[in-house]
């Protein structure tokens, strides 16, 4: 009973905060609303006795959303949402796609006879996971590890200022303020220090 109430409360929190992500003006609020959504899902996983997955979700997502928040402030014109602005496109189509995917998945869930063989109570889920990761599925686990390493290398290569063929900003050309207009913002080659945002809208 208690578990059910907790589950419904956490589900409501996860969905509500997920919804707020795209409705609030402040980018920092959006980022941390997403973090709250993840934390709620992690707590649901804890209720389902996925002890490690639940806590690890909170742990990982706090770090990820922190990094996301930094990028928000770096890249957005209006991170605090102090001036109202609309940053969306193909709005109706997106709403339609979102609703359609929700309805479609829900119908599929409701019409399927889902198999039920629940978790045996008092199981050692943590020990199971450990032996699986370093036993039968070690290859998969290690592949994921190597993928993450490759990601780190790739991210550094992609984002480094000294690009592979000379300076990363060589030949940089900001988009025009109007369609086909003159490039906006600073001229990179001229080396002027003023960085003006040429968002392109």
């Amino acid at each position: 009973m208690m578990t059910s109430i907790l589950f419904y409360a956490l589900s409501a929190l996860a969905i509500w905060s997920g919804w707020r992500v795209f409705r609030v003006d402040s980018m920092i609020r959006a980022t941390f609303a997403l973090m709250v959504s993840f934390i709620a899902v992690g707590a649901i996983a804890l209720l389902l006795s996925a002890d490690y997955i639940g806590v690890a979700t909170v742990f990982m997502m706090a770090v990820e959303m922190m990094v996301m928040g930094l990028f928000m402030i770096m890249f957005m014109m209006n991170p605090a949402g102090l001036n109202p602005m609309q940053m969306v496109h193909q709005y109706r189509f997106s709403i339609g796609a979102g609703v359609a995917s929700f309805v479609g998945l829900s119908v599929a869930v409701l019409t399927t006879a889902l198999p039920v063989s629940p978790l045996p109570p008092g199981g050692e889920t943590l020990r199971d996971l450990g032996t699986e990761l370093l036993g039968n599925s070690m290859l998969i686990f290690e592949t994921a590890g190597v993928t993450l390493l490759a990601t780190m290398v790739g991210a550094v290569v992609l984002s480094s200022a000294s690009g592979r063929f000379g300076s990363g900003s060589q030949g940089a050309q900001p988009p025009g303020l109007t369609e086909g207009g003159a490039p906006a913002g600073r001229k990179v080659d001229a080396g002027s220090g003023h960085s003006h945002h040429g968002g392109g809208h």
Binding site: F75, V88, S94, S106, L114
Partner: peptide, 27 residues
């Protein structure tokens, strides 16, 4: 399980809406 899957479908739907509608890369 049904309730959990419907919640996850809702999260997925909202996420799809956001990914399609937002202009900013980060959003």
């Amino acid at each position: 399980l049904t309730a959990i899957l419907i919640v996850s479908a809702a999260l997925f739907g909202i996420g799809l809406f956001g990914a399609l509608s937002q202009k900013s890369f980060v959003m």
